[in-house]
Simulated scan of single mutants.
Amino acid sequence: MTNPVTLITGATGGIGAALARALAGTHDLILTGRDTAKLQALQAEVGGETLALDLTRPETFAEAVAGLGRVTNLIHNAGVVELGAVAGQDHAVWTHTLTVNVVAPAELTRLLLPQVRAEQGTILFVNSGAGLRANAEWASYAASKHALKALADALRNEEAPHGVRVTSLYPGRTATEMQRKVREQEGAPYDAAAFVQAETVADTIRNVLNLPHDATIPDLSIRPGPR
């Protein structure tokens, strides 16, 4: 039997790197990330191949993925967040956030659907609790994550006849560098022990990917446990 081929965007981030380590040896990995040095270090650790993608420029994706062969699973993990009130965030923040968090996943999905259909694989969107509700100062990020949910919901219905499963995962606060940035923007301390660990989220994604094909998990939330 051949291993499934799993592409992870944002592979050098907290959840992405944890997922790459969790899947190493049982999945053939395609790793994408912004930091070339970190990406190469991760590749040396878990194997697989790397793919250069600039998520701010979806128009470059077609050329970037043209040489890819099999793709079984597509994990949309990369994302950006910039907190701020609607009154204080101009169109540049909105455009950047929506491009990276929504337009890039939509375009990458479109381009790789033939391979995922051929494998009857899984497309998983790492969303956020902000994809289910919007709080003050979170408008641009929450809007992007609500849009990502809509993308996943529509895609799920469209691709079911092709045997492709689509899951939206809604992690609560997770111990990552992105969360550290968020806490700084909120003016609050960062305590990794108070949050879901990236490895726990990675294990959850691995379980979704390994689910027998007679079932699917459309939506899944994971939150920090009681303290």
Rank of each mutant, 00 (worst) to 15 (best):
N3H: 13
A66E: 05
G13F: 06
R117M: 13
R57F: 11
T12E: 06
V100I: 03
V196I: 12
W138E: 00
E49L: 10
N210H: 11
A192E: 08
V80G: 01
V103A: 06
V80C: 01
L111D: 04
I30D: 05
A118H: 12
D35T: 11
T176Y: 01
V182Q: 00
P212V: 10
L68R: 12
S140W: 01
L151F: 03
Y190V: 01
L220I: 07
Q115F: 01
I205Q: 08
L42M: 07
A24W: 12
I30C: 03
T204P: 07
K149M: 14
T109E: 04
A66C: 03
H76K: 09
M178E: 06
S140N: 08
Q89S: 09
P4R: 13
Q179N: 13
A130S: 11
L74C: 09
A152Y: 01
R70D: 12
E82I: 04
L113F: 06
R110W: 15
P105M: 11
V126K: 06
H76V: 09
A106W: 10
A193V: 08
H27S: 06
Y190A: 03
H76N: 12
G47V: 15
W138H: 02
V208M: 15
D28R: 14
T176D: 02
Q197W: 11
R223H: 14
A139F: 02
G14S: 05
L220Q: 07
Q120S: 15
T50V: 07
L74K: 14
T32S: 12
T72Q: 08
L55M: 12
P224G: 00
T32C: 14
L220G: 05
G163Y: 08
N207A: 13
D54R: 14
Y190I: 02
T99S: 02
A193Q: 14
P171T: 07
T216H: 10
